[in-house]
Design a protein around this nucleic acid. Sequence first.
DNA 1: TATGCGCATTTCATTATTTGCAACGGCATT
DNA 2: AATGCCGTTGCAAATAATGAAATGCGCATA
Lengths: 255, 255
Amino acid sequence: MSTVAKAVSLLEMLGSGAPETALADLARRAGFDKATTRRLLVSLIAHGLVEQDETTRLYRLGAGIARLALMREAQFPFLRMAAPVVEALAAETGETVHLSEYSKRGLITVQVIESAKANRVSVQLGDVVPMHATASGIAFLAFTEERIREGVLAGPLPAFTPHTIADMEILVEHVAAARARGHSTGSQGYEEGVLSVAAPILGADGFAIGTIAIAAPRVRIHKGDIERHGASVAAAAREIGERLFGRQPGQKRAS
Amino acid sequence: MSTVAKAVSLLEMLGSGAPETALADLARRAGFDKATTRRLLVSLIAHGLVEQDETTRLYRLGAGIARLALMREAQFPFLRMAAPVVEALAAETGETVHLSEYSKRGLITVQVIESAKANRVSVQLGDVVPMHATASGIAFLAFTEERIREGVLAGPLPAFTPHTIADMEILVEHVAAARARGHSTGSQGYEEGVLSVAAPILGADGFAIGTIAIAAPRVRIHKGDIERHGASVAAAAREIGERLFGRQPGQKRAS
DNA sequence: TATGCGCATTTCATTATTTGCAACGGCATT
DNA sequence: AATGCCGTTGCAAATAATGAAATGCGCATA
């Protein structure tokens, strides 16, 4: 295991769970020696990615993380460009809307606007959602590079609910349908009782770089809602793409 | 030089400068061997902190950075709590307002609201500003732990303009004055023609964790403005502290 | 179309860093 | 006073990182 891999997994452990973590706890969870863990943390502290409370000796993520994220946002203003569109879509539909960005590990939820309704779908900011079990994932797969799609299809398809698509053949059909319609639908594949509609945000090269999705309790979705929401979410996705890259290229033809 | 130090400096290089960087360029700037640089990047890519354009082979910061920042914000919602207060202060004063957070390297600018006026002060998001040359820095020093203050005072005090306080004795006086008044002032210490007023945001233990500042062109500041802005910025800082930690503790007495 | 240049990538023996055990001291609870 | 847990540090062993060189690729120039 490379040293940077260890350091990064420490960062991820600090990010998940409690706001602050003790050294021994961290070492146990990571499976590293106490001494090793501490030395890695010291290196990370020197660069501001981790901070330590002077009195309690607990560790937490540092402001250097925020700095890197701000620098990234300055170079590629995904959130700044997408946020108004997401807000408009949430206002238009009255349902929970979330925005996600592609990463090797899955789709990262980077913005969420929750519905004002009492019965609403709740998504956690920063969560990584699986490609095969969500509307967003399927929308993404439908418009990503062959190589990435094959990677997901070849991998395991763990079931999160009894409704999760765990069969590769069926998943391929869903992806093909999403490609044909320009948006995808998901039905309780990740969380029970939730219906979603999603569309891909396309990059300059025509491949998906993220997705935008509407999520609503199943009981609130009636005949025709899916189609209406599908059109809305696809329009929002296209607008985000245009705001980021100017006029959108034609979608890449999948082989 | 530790391996994680090298990896982190690559991240910082990717964050500064052009949105995408070539391997050779990165290796040159960092002073690492091409092979070394690439292996570090591969490790970072595996964790989503870096991405590589498949066709151009250029590297950029990845979505994993945003994920870590979101997880941090979920644990410690500094921006979410402070943002409305910063906006209100900007609306009240009509001048540029910026918010910063402490980090080992200096104060990190995490939010900026620029004045609507044509002649305005512009601050770069994500920038790290020096402690001794800005109103924010002096406000922070006035309310931080002895140890951190001594560290800055002991270090070099580089001059950014002819007005930068480069003398340790004078700096100590400014810090003492800021401590007495509850807010600090800065006059062209970092950028020519800019006057600033700043106040510390205090943590649960009474020590500063960040600052909020008003920055305006020197020509626009008239008699009385400094005092008025000082009161406003101090009130805003206090409100942010209260939103984060509940009722504010008394300020720590510096020895 | 041919040629040369710069770049990214891979290999492998050498080197240096990281590692984990163990011991120490501090702190709080028993 | 004693016990247990934690954070910290030293040191020899082990492992991972290193850099020079070779390979192959793409691009621009001849």
